[in-house]
Write a protein that binds this DNA or RNA. Structure first.
Ligand SMILES: [Zn+2]
Ligand SMILES: [Zn+2]
Length: 447
DNA sequence: TCGATCGGACCCTCAAGATT
DNA sequence: ATCTTGAGGGTCCGATCGAA
């Protein structure tokens, strides 16, 4: 838990960049969460804000490595990837997502603000959105070490005014963009989806063609519904192809945010690798022959495709498993159609036999293993430094040894015996992140 | 020792909601 | 209309591991 703490609030208060982060612009900030629990940040050394480019190139993005604004970037030059060094595509932010009421705004009183910054924030602020405690927000002074509260308050105010200028510019830009978009869009914008309390306002987005407005024909149909119908269709023998696509990251993020409302994903999935055989087609694939029985995860009494399956599905050229998201969504919503057990009553390790399979079949792989976009015959050597062609990107988690690896990695970080709730969030967050990577790969494979 | 991998901390942007 | 909040979606650090 301590490992999950983040100096988020402190960073936000000190943040004066208001947008661009240039080296000169870097202010000294409290260190990363490195400090011990409970240790006041007031003595902590300052650190520069981490700079990041606006848009990493596709190669750096996929390698999760630092990029720069040059094209080709330094890293691509180093690895002789000059040809493929192009900006990665960015998804447009979704619209129409209801957010619920904000916390009450404070009066523009410096004293109030100072008090606000000195005080432990309201409970909702004391935790991150995933329920993790935020470093520096639990009573410790979250301001800069030497700065008196008033000074910090003033800094915050001045920061806001300085930010304001850039914000108005941003707005103009944004409006221009909107106008442009409107020109492209044929239809009128749909009304926002409003779901009941505790519901998950997940909107459908095409992970592959997300940027193409024309593809959002069903964009405001709650993803929950789409996923479930997709899962149903798949359960009836349809393949996933042609199914409504899904939102990998945001959907899951939203899902785990709603976990408070009901049932939980309360087990580290890695503890539940059942001995379930992979689909025959998958086994036949030369690059994806699990050395051990294909691991299958469970949530309570339902089975989930393993985390690895996202990789497999991706590597095999299919979108991430809709069914898994659908099931997760069910869990988050507390739907019991999947024979969910009551919350918190889930055993750490399942001992009873698997129930009727609720999880629909995984998508069939294409006949041909899709060549990695960056691996060409002539420069395999170079490329393999980034993406070994003989295995998938996340191969560390796909073999039998990887299975124990998974156990170690995942079980250690969210042991259900300690804090099931947080653990479940952590798991979904991992899924979300994994899907983010999957998404990145999918996009570049398509382009 | 080095490069690849990937979890998650950190960051920025901007739509939703609140306030004027 | 303007301001503020905070979530979406991004970057990339650093721990870890396997290979050379
Ligand atoms: Zn780059
Ligand atoms: Zn590059």
């Amino acid at each position: 838990m301590a490992s999950a703490s983040r100096p988020h609030s402190a960073a936000e208060i000190i943040d004066t960049s208001g947008g661009q982060t240039s080296p000169q612009d870097q202010r000294l900030r409290p260190p990363y969460s490195g400090g011990e629990e409970g240790q006041s940040s007031s003595d902590a050394p300052l650190r520069p804000k981490r700079a990041q480019v606006k848009n990493a190139c596709v190669n750096c993005q996929r390698a999760c490595k630092k990029c720069d604004s040059g094209r080709p970037c330094q890293r691509c030059i180093k690895y002789n990837l000059v040809d493929s060094c192009v900006d990665s595509k960015r998804k447009p932010r979704k619209k129409g997502i209801k957010r619920g009421p904000y916390k009450k705004r404070k009066k523009n009183n410096p004293e109030d603000e100072a008090a606000l910054h000195n005080q432990p924030p309201e409970t909702s602020l004391g935790e991150s959105s995933i329920g993790m405690p935020l470093a520096g927000s639990s009573g410790a002074n979250v301001t800069t070490p030497q700065a008196p509260a008033a000074a910090v308050a003033a800094a915050a105010v001045s920061r806001r005014s300085s930010v304001r200028a850039t914000r108005t510019e941003q707005k103009k830009r944004q409006q221009r963009r909107l106008q442009q978009q409107k020109g492209n869009e044929e239809r009128a914008p749909k009304p926002p989806v409003v779901l009941g309390p505790g519901a998950i306002p997940i909107l459908h987005t095409d992970p592959v063609h997300d940027d193409e407005v024309s593809d959002e024909s069903s964009s405001d149909v709650p993803l929950v519904i789409q996923q479930r119908s997709a899962a149903q269709a798949m359960a009836h023998g349809h393949t996933q192809y042609g199914m409504p696509p899904e939102t990998p990251t945001s959907g899951l993020t939203m899902a785990f945010r709603s976990l408070d409302t009901g049932h939980r994903v309360s087990e580290p999935l890695s503890q539940h690798h059942g001995a379930i055989s992979p689909p025959a087609a998958r086994l036949s694939h030369p690059h994806h022959q699990p050395a051990a029985p294909y691991p299958q995860s469970t949530i309570g009494s339902i089975r989930l495709p393993p985390i690895e399956s996202f990789d497999h599905a991706q590597a095999l050229g299919s979108p991430p498993s809709t069914s898994s998201l659908a099931i997760l969504t069910d869990v988050a919503l507390g739907h019991t159609s999947s024979s969910l057990p009551p919350p918190l009553s889930v055993p750490a390790v399942r001992t009873h036999p698997a129930p009727q399979v609720m999880h629909p079949p995984l998508p069939q792989p294409p006949a041909q293993y899709p060549q990695h976009p960056h691996v060409s015959a002539e420069d395999t050597n170079q490329q393999s430094q980034l993406y070994p062609p003989s295995d998938d990107h996340h191969s560390r988690h796909t073999t039998s040894t990887a299975e124990s690896d998974v156990s170690t990695n995942y079980a250690s970080s969210f042991d259900s015996r300690q804090s099931p709730d947080i653990n479940s969030r952590a798991y979904i967050r991992r899924l979300s992140h994994r899907l983010h990577h999957t998404h990145i790969e999918q996009e570049s494979a398509d382009s």
